[in-house]
Amino acid sequence: MEGAHVSDEARRLAGVDTSTPNLARMHDYFLGGKDNFAVDREAAEAVLAVAPEVRVMAREHQAFNLRALRFLVEQGITQFINLGTGLPNEFNTHELVQAQAPGTHVAYVENDPVTLVHGRALLARGPGTAMVKGDVMHPGELLADPGLREIIDFDRPVGLLLFGVLQYIPDKSDPFRRVAELRAALPAGSYIVITHVVFDARPEAAEPIVDVYRKMRGGPAEGGARTREDILPFFDGLDLVDPGVVYVREWRPDSPFLQERPEKAWVMVGVGRKTGP
């Protein structure tokens, strides 16, 4: 059955075009979920045909998310903006941070119709949570959104989560400027968490994988594949938290054994703190 957990009602309300693959639903498929359609599975399998380790990378990415959220709560962050929310699962940001710090506010930001419908039904029905339509490419509209402003106080530090939303956006679309605009809106003491697939260890996989996502987005015919050096400007203006921008397995692992062969999970991650205006 297509999208066993994505109800017909959700599709109807969202006006979903199931002929186009979607990043959140592909990620759900990589993690073994059922909230995806045939077109998502086809695109995901095209990626897996080039790099079967992507399933492992998805799990490593999820484990990092848990570690990063725990760290930010320990630093006293009690409000989060999660861009590129993805579909609801057992690792929802608001549940994780509110378990550590009750009363924490979480604003989810997403522009996929199915994710918005599911999020508003499941993620944002508790106190301190909201689901806002938007994306990283339109920071001005997002920052002015009344729903975001209702739940996030920009006079206090914020945790901005950019989990896998910047990869494959070509340089000509200037994602670096968009991140800089978001950073400028955050008060001192805020943190930005970024995860980004890089191709240092698998340069031969760059073109075929990026081509899959390029076709999905209908974007330009070039750009999107980056190395570690390429993504460092995303962290401009931030003080990097130790150990810096590293492979996902290397960022504060729960056990030293978990960071073996870090290049096998070729996702770079970093956490930066804004200290100035």
Rank of each mutant, 00 (worst) to 15 (best):
A188N: 07
F257K: 09
E150S: 14
A68I: 08
G140M: 03
E90Y: 06
D28C: 12
F71C: 06
T115F: 02
L143G: 06
V271W: 05
P262N: 02
L72D: 04
A225Q: 10
R273L: 05
D40V: 06
F176L: 10
L116N: 07
D211C: 00
L232Q: 14
G219F: 04
P187I: 11
D200L: 10
S7L: 14
N82T: 05
L160F: 00
G244Q: 08
A225N: 07
E53I: 09
Q100I: 03
V269H: 09
T275P: 05
K172M: 14
N89R: 14
Q167I: 02
D236S: 13
P277I: 03
G276Y: 03
E74F: 01
V198T: 15
S173R: 13
V165P: 02
V271N: 07
L83E: 04
V197I: 15
F91A: 13
A14W: 07
A49P: 03
G244A: 07
G3K: 08
G272A: 12
H138M: 03
K34P: 00
L66K: 14
D35I: 00
I194P: 04
P21K: 13
M26G: 05
Y247D: 03
V246I: 11
K264M: 12
F30I: 04
R125P: 00
G140R: 15
D145Q: 12
L48Q: 05
K133D: 02
E42C: 03
P253T: 11
T78W: 00
E150H: 14
D155C: 01
E110H: 11
N111F: 13
D135V: 05
T20Y: 01
V132D: 08
E181C: 01
A68M: 14
A107K: 05
R249T: 15
F30A: 01
V245E: 10
A68F: 06
E250A: 09
A38F: 08
L238M: 07
M26N: 04
P102W: 13
I77A: 04
K274C: 04
A184W: 00
K172F: 01
L69F: 00
V16P: 02
A49D: 13
E150M: 01
P102A: 13
L186M: 14
F37Q: 12
V241P: 09
L87A: 06
E207S: 02
A107D: 07
R226W: 03
V198M: 08
F91H: 15
T227E: 06
L258M: 14
V158D: 01
P21N: 09
G276E: 14
E42Y: 04
F154P: 06
P256Q: 13
G134C: 05
G223F: 09
E95H: 05
G164H: 11
L116E: 10
L161V: 03
V197H: 08
A206C: 15
G84C: 05
L96H: 12
A58R: 07
N89S: 15
H118T: 03
Q100T: 01
V269E: 11
V47W: 02
R178L: 00
Q167C: 00
Y191A: 03
K215T: 13
Y168T: 15
D236E: 15
D35F: 01
R67F: 10
V6K: 00
L148P: 11
G140L: 05
Q100H: 02
L142T: 02
I81H: 09
A201Q: 13
E141A: 15
A188W: 13
G140T: 15
